[in-house]
């Protein structure tokens, strides 16, 4: 397994937007790890710049991925107090500089459809990438699943093929960060509030957030609301296929909520960040500054698992 992290999710679940927000989210992070994203080759660097520019500067969503895109990026940072040294006056801890390779594979949602007949080669390549990955970022868009309801079909198809490829294993060995995306959508926030799973950040802009401890339950409840009545099987399917201890859930948003620049504070009466398309010629837009939610956390968690796996 040398491919690092693969992004996996049905069509339009927010994979590309997640990647586009990642660089800025790392810059904005408020931890002492100072993680940042770096392109390791020219095309990867160009793509990193392009995605970030589109989302952050142009405030539009990057075009969805076609077929399969591979980026060679690295997560560069420091782990504070990671190295313990002994001196005459006793032990001392100092930070450790880390470069975690992120071989990000961003695949078009369609490639993983169970009944897809065309582009079989691309699907095989995608499965091979998953097979070789240590970490998987799995994207679940409850809004799309409520409207289209293709999450289970997509997940089942991919996992069946992946399981078949990795026969010697019992449960598959990957670390899986499940991102329940588009938390900025009002239906998502409403649902979380109705389920009493929302906490507000202490720091400005005091965003609402579903704590990591509740994220799995939130995911489970949202799956039950899906249009197809099959989405509730997505969670058991993931947990039967992967080691439960290697799965973590994050309720995320690539663009975050809108914050009035004059107040700088989240306002429950005015938080819509996504401006939907209003005419056929129009593109969906982003209203305010990008303030990602739980974009850094899953990638750093996976990065650390990669670093640990690599020794």
């Amino acid at each position: 397994m040398n491919k690092g992290i693969t992004l996996w999710g049905a069509t339009a679940t927010g994979k590309t937007s997640f990647l586009a927000a990642l660089h800025t989210a790392l810059v904005d992070q408020k931890t002492d790890s100072d993680w940042r994203l770096r392109g390791e080759d020219d095309p990867s660097t160009q793509r990193l710049v392009s995605l970030t520019h589109t989302l952050v500067n142009e405030r539009v969503f990057p075009k969805a991925t076609t077929n399969l895109q591979e980026y060679s990026w690295s997560l560069v940072g420091t782990m504070p107090r990671a190295i313990q040294e002994w001196h005459w006056y006793g032990p001392r801890r100092r930070p450790k500089n880390l470069v975690i390779p992120l071989h990000v594979v961003d695949a078009q949602g369609e490639v993983a459809k169970a009944n897809r007949s065309q582009g079989r080669d691309v699907t095989r390549q995608f499965i091979a990438n998953l097979e070789n990955s240590t970490g998987i970022l799995f994207f679940y868009d409850p809004v799309r699943d409520f409207e289209v309801g293709d999450a289970y079909e997509h997940t089942f198809g991919v996992l069946t093929e992946l399981d078949s490829q990795l026969k010697p294993y019992g449960k598959l060995p990957h670390h899986v960060a499940v991102c329940i995306t588009k938390f900025d959508e009002h239906r998502m926030l409403d649902a979380a509030m109705r389920m009493r799973m929302v906490e507000h950040d202490i720091d400005p802009p005091h965003f609402p957030r579903v704590p990591e401890a509740d994220a799995r339950e939130f995911f489970a409840k949202l799956c039950r609301l899906s249009k197809t009545q099959t989405a509730h099987r997505v969670l058991p399917l993931l947990e039967q296929t992967f080691d439960r201890s290697k799965i973590r859930y994050f309720v995320s948003s690539a663009i975050g909520f809108y914050v009035d620049p004059f107040t700088g504070v989240f306002d429950l009466r005015d938080y819509q960040q996504h401006i939907p398309r209003t005419t056929p010629d129009d593109d969906p837009r982003i209203r305010g500054d990008i303030r990602s939610i739980n974009v850094v956390e899953p990638i750093i968690w996976l990065g650390r698992q990669l670093a640990r796996t690599a020794g």
Partner: peptide, 14 residues
């Protein structure tokens, strides 16, 4: 303010 049924964004001056 935010109007969920229409999803029309609010007036900046409210």
């Amino acid at each position: 303010w935010g109007d969920q049924p229409t999803e029309i964004l609010p007036c900046p001056s409210h």
